[in-house]
């Protein structure tokens, strides 16, 4: 039987959670623990970090005795990076380029996540979303944006 990491979600989860817990508990050492009667800012995070560490270790340990997941982890890089990237691009373009360009460019990029669309349909969706956005947020809700020109 091979050791397929991509089919061991619980093992990965356990290790990650334990890492976060241990990090939090160690990092929170810099804050004053205080006493039980007068807790300092470090008390709660240290307790939580230790607790999360134990949960993570238990999850990872138990997972070694469990059956593999049916489906391996499959990252849809293309789709995820296009959609998440379109948000980032909107954020970066909004101030320098204005609402119209930021909406248009990020929407067009977002439509590329759906591979079945034709160029014509992408353009149509981009146009419609941009017009609706400008009308609703700029004209109807009077939000303070620069339109871009």
């Amino acid at each position: 039987m091979q050791f397929n990491l991509l089919k061991r979600r619980n093992l990965i989860s356990g290790i990650l959670l334990a890492a976060v817990g241990i990090f939090a508990a160690v990092y929170a050492q810099r804050y004053n623990m205080g006493s039980l009667a007068r807790m300092g800012p470090g008390f709660f995070p240290v307790v939580l970090g230790v607790l999360l560490g134990f949960i993570g270790i238990a999850l990872a340990a138990v997972s070694l005795f469990e059956a593999l997941d049916e489906e391996p982890i499959r990252v849809e890089w293309r789709k995820a990076s296009i959609i998440l990237g379109s948000i980032l691009i909107f954020a970066l373009l909004l101030r320098p380029a204005g609402l119209i360009l930021a909406t248009g460019i990020s929407t067009f990029i977002a439509t590329m996540a759906d591979q079945k669309l034709t160029f014509y349909k992408r353009a149509l969706i981009t146009f419609a979303v941009t017009v609706i956005t400008v009308v609703i947020f700029y004209y109807l809700l009077n939000m303070r944006f620069s339109l871009g020109w």
């Binding site: 959609i83 909107f90 996540a113 349909k121 979303v129 956005t133």
Partner: peptide
């Protein structure tokens, strides 16, 4: 089709949180 909806949802998310 969902393809027409999700780009609009993305813009609404961005503008909403910016507002």
């Amino acid at each position: 089709p969902y393809a027409a909806l999700y780009p609009a949802i993305l813009v609404f998310i961005s503008i909403g949180v910016y507002s």
